[in-house]
């Protein structure tokens, strides 16, 4: 009887371990999926910025140094995105958002630029994308929290250690 009971215990433990492993896989993939969802929007937003720079350049007096900074910050954001590290993307993204906000603030002094329908449409598109990025960042960070809590919980932490499930990094923008 004791042998049967031991077998039953082993069976229960192995079913539980399989479910736990599947849970670790699920939360890990949820983080990857959430990151991919942000990545798409970051790319779309980064593709809009050169258009914004081109329109601003048409106004000769518009701050050339700001546009040059915006160009290099965008290049840094694109490079950071290719590295796919949440820390570097967060830093580059914070800087880029600050530059874009500055362009919008300075554009207030240029009535012709503000009246340009293309400029207004671009500004709306960029702020819409930034709002969507903010929402998805919140979702990504929640997925990261779930992943990190799951792999630190006992007994999942044993399986996470054996199968090398790692904690993920929160996405923090440097202007937060």
């Amino acid at each position: 009887m004791a042998g049967f009971a031991l077998l039953l215990l082993l069976f229960v433990a192995s079913v539980y371990a399989v479910a736990l492993y599947n849970q670790l896989v699920l939360v890990k993939h949820n983080v990857v999926k959430a990151w991919a969802n942000i990545d798409v929007l970051l790319k779309q937003r980064n593709d809009e910025i050169p258009k914004l720079i081109d329109i601003c350049r048409q106004y000769a007096r518009f701050e050339a140094s700001l546009l040059a900074r915006l160009t290099s910050t965008r290049a840094a954001a694109v490079a950071a995105q290719q590295g796919a590290s949440a820390y570097s993307v967060g830093r580059a993204e914070g800087a880029l958002r600050a530059e874009v906000a500055q362009v919008a603030a300075i554009a207030e002094a240029y009535p012709d630029l503000r009246a340009n329908t293309q400029f207004r449409a671009l500004q709306e598109r960029i702020s819409g994308l930034e709002a969507a990025i903010a929402d998805r960042r919140e979702f990504y960070n929640e997925s990261v929290r779930i992943n990190n809590v799951t792999i630190e919980r006992f007994p999942a932490t044993l399986l996470a250690g054996w199968f090398a499930f790692r904690p993920a990094e929160l996405l923090k923008f440097s202007d937060d």
Partner: peptide
């Protein structure tokens, strides 16, 4: 697992 593993 699905409920706890999926962010809202």
């Amino acid at each position: 697992n699905l409920i706890e593993g999926t962010a809202t």
